[in-house]
Amino acid sequence: MMDESKVGLTSKQKAGNFIGSFGLIIILLVIFGLFSFLIPGVYFTWVNLRDMIRFSSFVGIGAIGMTFCIMTGNFDISVGSMLALAGVLGASLAPRISGVGGVIVTIIVALFLGFINGVFVTKLKIPAFITTLGMLFVFRAIAYIYTNNTPQYIQDRFWISIGNKTFLGLPIPIYIMAVCYGIAYLLLKKSPVGRYIIAVGTNSRAATLSGINVDNIKILVFTLIGLFVGIAAVINASMLGAANPGMMGDGWEFQVITAVVLGGTALSGGSGSLGGSLLAALIIIFLKTGMSNAQVNSYWQQVATGLVLIFAVSLNKLKFWLIGQTQ
């Protein structure tokens, strides 16, 4: 009787599942192999590898919150500006309230901004992207105005060490990223909240009938984005030694969204993968570093990032089409 409910997979479905499971690893290996071959002695070195992973933590941590958000079928396009606003506020206060205080302020500010986004999105009943598009400009403008467009340098040794020191041979951001992914994994897989997030994304009407408060889950998800953006802001400001109201996080939302989409999270919500987002963040940085190392014109790099996003969405479409649940 067991067999009755087991559906035999067609070759198409198998291909779709294969793309879902191994596609990213193959892409990562191909990129890594290609650049190792093209620029021998530069790309495939321990130092370069370590640095690439260190840089990928910036995109990777941001991608966590965005993965949750897109899983619920929403979208936050304001993360880059949120990063800058939280960063400059924290950095500007650090001299007065110590580095630790600055770090905490940065994270709390981002958390709060995310919460505001969530409230607006749920209460206005308007697609999240348009609300957060407005916020993208508001946050950035406030960052400019607050700092009078001057970079906020970070002198505090504790804060500087977060992004630049190593521990047991590995850069600290890698540990932070690992902890963030660990917590996110527990949240998604081992706590009721994770179930609620997926339920809201896969079928919000069914979730409502199951007694889940859909609005609260959405607000929570936007707040989580804030949390991880705050952590990313701390690392980013530390690596650069300053929080710059104009440059900090400019175009970052694009990288983060690309990572999540490339990681296999469906834009329509419901299914998503943290591991996929992490791998995709690595792919983006491996590709970017590789192109830089190979001295590819930076404008070509920009074109490439756009193409990668379109490729990622198309790949997702292909995957779901093969598995047979067209959206």
Binding site: F129, F254, L267, Q302, V303, L307, I310, V313, S314, K317
Partner: peptide
């Protein structure tokens, strides 16, 4: 292809800027 207008035009913006 069925790409959402949001993603498509966002990507196009970056591509055109680069171009």
């Amino acid at each position: 292809v069925g790409i959402s207008p949001l993603i498509m035009t966002l990507a196009m913006q970056v591509i055109l800027r680069g171009t």
